[in-house]
Design a protein around this nucleic acid. Sequence first.
DNA 1: CCGATCCTTTTACATTTGTTAAATAATCAT
DNA 2: ATGATTATTTAACAAATGTAAAAGGATCGG
Lengths: 194, 194
Amino acid sequence: MSLPNATPSLFTYFNSIQKISSNAEEALKAISFLIETPKNKHVQEIGQTCRTYYFVTAGLARIYYLKDGIEVTEYFAFENDMIIRAESLFTGNPSKKAIQAIEKTKLIGIPASKLEILFNSFPEIERLFRKIMEASYVSYVNRMESLQFHSAEERYIQLISDFPELLEKIPLKHISSYLGITQVSLSRIRANIR
Amino acid sequence: MSLPNATPSLFTYFNSIQKISSNAEEALKAISFLIETPKNKHVQEIGQTCRTYYFVTAGLARIYYLKDGIEVTEYFAFENDMIIRAESLFTGNPSKKAIQAIEKTKLIGIPASKLEILFNSFPEIERLFRKIMEASYVSYVNRMESLQFHSAEERYIQLISDFPELLEKIPLKHISSYLGITQVSLSRIRANIR
DNA sequence: CCGATCCTTTTACATTTGTTAAATAATCAT
DNA sequence: ATGATTATTTAACAAATGTAAAAGGATCGG
């Protein structure tokens, strides 16, 4: 189903990245669909091939996968954040990862196949998505830098300073694996800095 | 200076990502320039704002920065690899990082300002760069996954299995910081698996 | 409210990695 | 070639993180 009338703030956000004509915006909305997911429900399951760009418009979602049977959180997405399983979407391979709503969450989905057709008629939409990719790339470069050269304690302090709301919304076990450490280790760090 | 006549293999590589017309290719070549850098010479210094996309066409380069006075290698670029200081190029902020040739290296530089003008007349070039960004994004997602959830020993073994030539070409101290560990720790790991 | 389940912390110990310093080994400029 | 510089390894000890198990806390459905 395409989008209801109410213009989601996502498109305001899109326009702040790359101004697009109302024609282009309508075309983009026409291929978009809205999903509402209850807490803990999966948006996409492990093993599926990803053919959709998702953006969180309300709530909070994560990407995770299983390492030795343990859930490992790779990414959190807040309002306006893109959430894609890139290693599947951009290669066509099935994804080892899942997308899950952490709380009641609204997402806008954009099918890659339809989007690619729009790219042909609306270069401005392709530009928008190029810029979104650039910004996502930068955020991964920065995250890698943080993993490579900051201690777990520094990473934790940075994370909760960037996203104070995380602590109320996300179980610590997700936060620990996101930081690349065990739950026990995170508990120790929290005890230390208290 | 724009490119000499000999078509660098980089453009063959570009065409394998996104077929572009010969018009577009000529336009892209017209704004590109070739750099030859001797071993250990900097292509870009710390503190400069990055306004150029670089691609390695021969040799080998790295991005590094200083953490507590110690050089930390963030990225290695081999033939056909893009090498950009994204956190500067895509934000306009001065970069804390440097690009340095590890051996005698040839690079093709493409000024961002001129490229953006080309994007307006050649959507296929914009598409090419969108796809390059996608691929770069995927490679950073994968690297982050490796840093987050594999031991230093696993990461080292994986790295030399992916790029066996690294060991002959790159000092171990660069490899250790790339892996997110100290030189001493890498030495121990190497002694262990021998 | 109650028991079951899940989340978080704590403890004790093992392993990995960091730090500092020294010893070799390799490389480079003269 | 020779000495100086740089790179790598080794050693000893400190600090950080992992593992396993247990104990509290919190949450949820009935």
